[in-house]
Design a protein around this nucleic acid. Structure first.
Lengths: 327, 327
DNA sequence: ATTTGGTGATAGCTTTTATCTATCAAAATA
DNA sequence: TATTTTGATAGATAAAAGCTATCACCAAAT
């Protein structure tokens, strides 16, 4: 039990009561005397002088209010009370060892659990390709991955909810550290029996009059699609906003409209190409740029930079035909 | 892990390496900053100044080799590594709390486990009458009772194996603290159909020629009995030394001889008086004096003196007709 | 019985650590 | 733009940890 009272600022002193405060050193000394039952031998093994040891044990005994040892010129014995407390002192020292061991382990490798935020339009379609390979590089690295829309991602990064995020650019805040990774194309998807399905890529002007499905407003994709629809006279279907890319896809198949879908999603999830026709706008290819982002003062920033390099290598190696890595 | 090397006595300094030694205070500071995420607020609640807190956290971070916090002018965040170590720091502080709580508990009462040695010819026949009553006086007192022959009892008291002993006098060592408790008569026991069984007390001269059974040599009783047999011409049966009082009793019943048995044993264990005749030697009553004994420098010596008083009271109260309490 | 060696304790001093006040630079807020 | 709040730094003071020298007491050896 520890009690604090506030400092009296008018006095160039303060009264701080931490009731009964043994130090780690005193407990180490206690353990050493208990094992040798000889102050001089214990002092030597501890690397201090015998008077210092005597004073420190006396100080500890004064703090707790009773003697830990029976002293005589015949030798030293652990007292009954000392016998009771010794296991508890050892528990503190063991907990201290565990603390130091873990600190050492953390210091010598990225053996920590980082919280990474990802957008739901990207995370599930990118990370399954990347994380297994990343795991081979850092077998003890743990990434706790959680999805959030991009704007919320960046806010929660600033709030400390995430340690780093994978997010489309541009970043809302200029104060963040940004490592661009790759450019992902946004594909134009229509039902297989749609009039625009027969040809290859579609001219932007050809989408005039089309009903365009999109995700709800807080997704980054939404704004881009909105701009294009406005520019080329397509109808943005506000009443049928989907909550996920799969929902959008099902709606396209059912003939409710057309949509712009991310390249990685298509690559990852669309295994029956006959149901839908996938192409790009010929003259205005739409894409989004993704980056790894973290707080500039993060103590792990050096590791994060290395992590970004690893992301680029893996993506280039495994998804070269789907996205364009930024060197 | 802690490494020690020995002091170089020719240099008025030493090199002491306690690798990475956080102090309890630093861990308390760590926990406080982690919970407020603000150095100034944490310092105020700790009762120290903000520069002190900053320096102590910096020192802790230097010891473990990485940062526990991300600092910015926008505020403070726990780093990833700090998040990993915080639970371990809390474990140390919890173990420290347990240590202090237990120390406080010990300080405020004899709530410790004392190791008490007793002779097997006494302990089992005295303590069942005494300990329940003693327990009412000190409900948290624990006595770990172990039997050993008297000579060994005293040696192990000196060695610290026991904290106190219940032993017949005189003590082998004059350096021990002795509180005499009571005098126990030694009874003369013969088979019920023995020629000496018809009368009351027996004259010492009447034991001439009798076969006298006794315990093995290291028991205190042995020497007394040996002296009496030598003085009055009885035969000490060396070939049939028993190992316990019960064994002796069975041998008496079987007509193998007569014996001297302690009064408390008889009072406690002989519930079928028709099998044996119990009396005393009329002109030379044999007895043994018992005492509570401890090391004079024992920190619990004041309590032991009180314990001796309690023993006397209880024995006087419950065994007044069997033994003579020494005031 | 005397001498020697070993025990833990004490006095006075030095070194190290913890803490303070004063003030800084940087960022956020009004 | 001015003010407030943040954590950091410099220089000084106080407290704690450690030292050497020596003590009294007891056990062991002679």
């Amino acid at each position: 039990m520890i009690a604090f009272i506030y400092q009296n600022t008018n006095v160039n002193q303060r009264i701080q009561i931490i009731k009964n405060k043994p130090t780690i050193k005193q407990l180490i000394y206690f353990e050493a005397v208990a094992s040798t039952l000889n102050f001089r031998q214990a002092a030597q093994s501890l690397g201090i002088t015998q008077p210092t040891l005597t004073l420190q044990i006396n100080s500890l005994e004064q703090q707790i209010g009773f003697q830990l040892f029976e002293r005589s010129r015949s030798g030293t014995l652990l007292s009954v009370q000392g016998r009771e407390l010794l296991p508890l002192a050892k528990k503190i020292l063991e907990a201290n060892d565990a603390f130091l061991d873990t600190a050492d382990w953390i210091k010598n490798g990225p053996v920590t659990t980082f919280k990474m935020g990802v957008p739901p339009t990207l995370g599930p379609y990118l990370l399954p390709s990347v994380l297994p390979e990343l795991h081979k590089q850092y077998d003890e690295l743990k990434l706790y991955v959680r999805e959030a829309p991009p704007k919320l991602l960046q806010q929660q990064l600033l709030d400390g909810e995430f340690d780093l995020i994978l997010s489309p650019l541009p970043a809302a805040s200029s104060e963040l550290a940004i490592q661009p990774l790759f450019i992902e194309p946004i594909k134009f998807v229509v039902p297989a029996d749609h009039k625009l399905a027969s040809s290859g890529d579609v001219s932007a002007s050809q989408i005039a009059g089309e009903n365009v499905l999109t995700l709800e407003e807080q997704h980054y994709l939404h704004r881009q699609v909105q701009d294009i629809c406005q520019q080329f006279g397509a109808n943005l279907m506000r009443d049928f906003e989907g909550t996920s890319l799969d929902t959008l896809r099902q709606m396209i198949v059912m003939g409710l409209g057309v949509a712009f879908l991310p390249g990685l999603y298509i690559h990852s999830e669309m295994h029956r190409p006959e149901a839908l026709h996938v192409c790009e706008l010929r003259d205005i290819p739409i894409s989004r740029k993704h980056a790894l982002i973290w707080r500039p003062k993060s103590p792990s920033r050096v590791f994060f930079r290395e992590l970004a390099s690893q992301f680029r290598e893996i993506i280039k190696d495994r998804l070269d035909k789907v996205v364009t890595v930024i060197e």
